[in-house]
Simulated scan of single mutants.
Amino acid sequence: MAGRRSDARQKMVSAARELFREQGYHATALSDVVQRSEAPRGSVYFHFPGGKAELAAEAAELHTREQVANIDRAAADARTPADLVRAYLDLARAALVASDYRQGCAVAPLVIESADLGEVSARSFTAIITALTGHFTTLGLDQANARTLADAVVAGAEGALITARALRSTSPFDAVQAVFAR
């Protein structure tokens, strides 16, 4: 029984992440999460007594872990900071195209739509920027330049996700790569 409970919990977190990426925080109802996850109706409040905000925090943490893992994978083959930038942006572009331009960042809607989740959002972006910074320093940049590049790449990737979705085109990713992956 415990395996089914934790399975339902994980399915709900994954479903919430997908829905936030597709339609935002406010447009996602808990009933949408239950339907997408195929979890038992009462399990939302059992697993997430803090409600939608608690579920959103867990979805943001899942998204962040995936982004850091993507950065680590991209860095494994990178020989230069530009290689890492290209690989990271390629992963974001590929995920967006695979979703038919429906899924952006799971954390961005929390920043825009919920002041109550500001700390969660800050932790998420800090973890992503820190991961990039660490790899950029390993690839030869000093700490200050590595942090500046990481900040810019994350800002560029987030902007590219939004504009690429609106335009249904990968050209925003091309533009960010042209600037940062020289």
Rank of each mutant, 00 (worst) to 15 (best):
Leu167Lys: 07
Gln143Pro: 02
Gly118Ala: 07
Ala60Leu: 09
Arg147Ser: 09
Leu141Lys: 03
Thr126Ala: 15
Ala78Val: 05
Gln67Asp: 14
Ala95Gly: 13
Asp151Ser: 03
Leu84Ala: 01
Tyr101Ala: 03
Ala108Lys: 03
Leu132Asp: 01
Gln103Ala: 14
Thr137Tyr: 09
Thr170Arg: 14
Ser124Ala: 15
Thr148Phe: 11
Ala131Ile: 02
Leu141Glu: 07
Gly159Phe: 09
Ala108Gly: 00
Asp151Pro: 06
Gly104Arg: 03
Ala122His: 14
Leu89Ala: 03
His135Met: 03
Gly134Asp: 07
Ser114Pro: 00
Val85Lys: 00
Ala87Trp: 10
Val97Ala: 10
Arg79Val: 10
Ala82Gln: 10
Ala94Pro: 12
Arg86Asp: 14
Pro81Ile: 02
Asp116Lys: 06
Leu139His: 06
Arg165His: 10
Gly134Lys: 04
Leu117Ser: 01
Ala60Ser: 11
Ala115Gly: 01
Arg79Asp: 11
Tyr101Asp: 00
Val153Asp: 03
Arg168Met: 07
Ser121Ala: 15
Arg86Lys: 13
Val68Ser: 11
Phe173Tyr: 11
Asp100Tyr: 04
Ala175Asp: 12
Thr138Ile: 07
Leu161His: 11
Arg168Leu: 03
Ala115Glu: 07
Glu66Val: 14
Val68Thr: 13
Gly134Gln: 07
Arg93Cys: 12
Phe136Met: 03
Glu66Tyr: 13
Ala76Ile: 07
Arg165Gln: 13
Cys105Asn: 05
Gly134Thr: 05
His63Asn: 15
Ala164Gln: 08
Ala150Ser: 07
Glu119Thr: 12
Ala94Phe: 09
Val154Phe: 08
Ala164Cys: 10
Gln103Tyr: 07
Thr133Tyr: 04
Arg73His: 13
Glu61Leu: 14
Ala122Pro: 02
Ile112Leu: 09
Ala82Leu: 07
His135Val: 04
Ile162Trp: 13
Thr137Asn: 06
Val176His: 04
Leu141Arg: 08
Leu167Pro: 02
Ala131His: 00
Ala166Lys: 10
Arg65Val: 13
Ser99Ile: 01
Leu84His: 01
Thr133Cys: 04
Val97Asn: 08
Pro109Gln: 02
